[in-house]
Nucleic acid binder design. Structure first.
Length: 316
DNA sequence: AAGACGAAAGTGGTTGA
DNA sequence: TCAACAACTTTCGTCTT
């Protein structure tokens, strides 16, 4: 995790070298308002900017009521009533006739002006939804092609009058969730819901509605799809990932994956692969990354070892 | 001290009447 | 709509490294 963050930083301007140890890893401590070097502990500055909210909230309702961030929805609602109108008369401000060349340009401008305006309530809805979708998918780091699928799903849902009586946000969240699954990069529903202001149940219901009413086949999340994400979170090596994939394939052939949570299977496969390839992670680390408990990892791993007849070399 | 193990009781979601 | 059910979680004590 830490090294991922530091590896990402392409901002050379912001890079600061610690005067104490010569390395450049600083962490902010908001509780004390200090920036300290995480290697040697030198306090770099004692005036940290707290980027968090200045309010406190004790319930989800309060959180929703007080949060001031979110989609700048007002800018996308229709034209916000401040757009310019282009007159149809071919006269300039003083009433003189406009030159023919200018007239042709005016004609094109009018055409596109009208086309760009939002006509029906559906367009209006779509406009709001798309801005929300943009916000949510950016927040979650959803790739472009998946966004396209999500947008398409939403449009289909809108046509089948599915959004009526439901919040736009919940259907948007559902579309993104399903698009991720279609593209075989499943995200846990909770992760998506966490970035919205709607409750989980409503999003879950919207997911069901979209699946049943919109004509799409959504593959069930499989353990194999989770491997890339998990292994990058755990910073495992290539051969370990390959081994884990192999284990999952074998597990599928032996029908031990049915009815089990994909996270558990993927985690267990990575755990075994880690031991076999000498690229070991603790059960706790894996459990945390794959969003199941250590116990589940243990159970799946025991089961996989038993069914697949893998012998674990203990002295490693 | 940290990690692994497993038992037992509790929880949320699916299935079938 | 409700109860049964399997999978999974939580909790906790014990053993191993």
């Amino acid at each position: 995790m830490k090294s991922l963050v530091s590896a990402k930083g392409g901002h050379t301007r912001r890079k600061e070298v610690c005067m104490g140890c010569g390395q450049s890893t600083f962490t902010k401590d908001y509780a004390r308002g200090e920036r300290t070097c995480s290697v040697c502990g030198l306090v770099a500055s004692d005036r940290t900017t707290d980027t968090g909210p200045e309010w406190r909230a004790f319930t989800a309702e309060e959180e929703n009521a007080r949060a001031r961030v979110g989609a700048p929805a007002t800018y996308t609602i229709a034209d916000k009533g401040i757009s310019t109108m282009i007159d149809w008369r071919n006269r300039d401000a003083s009433g003189k006739a406009i030159k023919s060349t200018t007239r042709a340009a005016m004609y094109r401008m009018r055409k596109w002006h009208i086309r760009s305006r939002l006509h029906s309530s559906q367009h209006r809805n779509l406009s709001i939804a798309m801005s929300e979708m943009h916000r949510l998918s950016s927040q979650l780091g959803i790739p472009r092609d998946v966004r396209e699928t999500a947008a398409l799903l939403y449009r289909k849902a809108l046509i089948t009058k599915l959004v009526r009586g439901r919040s736009i946000e919940s259907v948007v969240a559902a579309s993104i969730y399903l698009a991720c699954r279609i593209h075989r990069i499943p995200r846990p529903l909770d992760e998506i819901v966490a970035e919205t202001n709607v409750d989980r149940k409503k999003v879950g219901y919207a997911v069901r509605m979209v699946v049943s009413r919109v004509n799409v086949t959504v593959p069930l999340p499989s353990a194999k799809d989770l491997i890339p994400r998990l292994s990058s979170d755990l910073m495992l090596e290539g051969r370990t990932v390959e081994k884990a994939t192999e284990i999952i394939n074998q597990a599928k052939e032996n029908y031990v994956t049915i009815g089990k949570s994909p996270g558990g299977i993927a985690g267990a496969a990575l755990y075994i692969a880690g031991i076999l390839e000498d690229d070991r992670r603790t059960q706790r680390e894996i459990a945390h990354a794959s969003r199941v408990t250590e116990v589940t990892i243990r159970n799946r791993y025991k089961e996989l070892v038993r069914v697949l007849g893998i012998t674990i070399d203990v002295n490693s």
